[in-house]
């Protein structure tokens, strides 16, 4: 990994302004790995009367805005982040669910599906 600012001295690296890509990353326990949190939430849903829930797996969701010249290098960068930090490869699997040009705040859109209060 390069240090922030490295290469900005002679301007050659920043010859073209980079574009911003927003990637959605979903991290879940690997298949077969025990998920106590998912089980507890499953139990909580069942006690609320959701008898039709078969299983819950709980994980984490990240939205990362990354500067890159194109979608391919953005994805490479996000995948590296997943391998090194966002997921623990020993027990977790991840998926870069969506990656598109844009800016992070505008991409949130959680208000659309409720629960914002």
């Amino acid at each position: 990994m390069t240090e922030p600012g490295v290469g900005s001295g002679d301007g050659s690296v920043l010859a073209e302004p980079e574009r911003t890509w927003v990637a959605d990353v979903v991290v879940l326990p690997k298949p077969g790995v025990n998920d106590p949190q998912g089980e507890a939430i499953h139990g909580g849903l069942a006690s609320l009367g959701y008898a039709d829930v078969r299983r819950v797996r709980s994980g984490r969701f990240f939205r990362v805005a990354v500067a890159a010249p194109d979608v391919h290098s953005a994805r490479v960068s996000v995948v590296a982040m997943c391998d090194q930090l966002l997921a623990n490869p020993v027990i977790e699997a991840y998926r870069v669910a969506n990656i598109a040009e844009g800016d992070l705040e505008a991409a949130v859109g959680l208000d659309d599906v409720g629960g914002g209060s």
């Binding site: 790995v33 106590p36 089980e39």
Partner: peptide, 10 residues
């Protein structure tokens, strides 16, 4: 094999 994940609540 699969790494054990503990559940202290259980």
């Amino acid at each position: 094999g699969v790494v054990q994940v503990g559940n202290p609540f259980l």
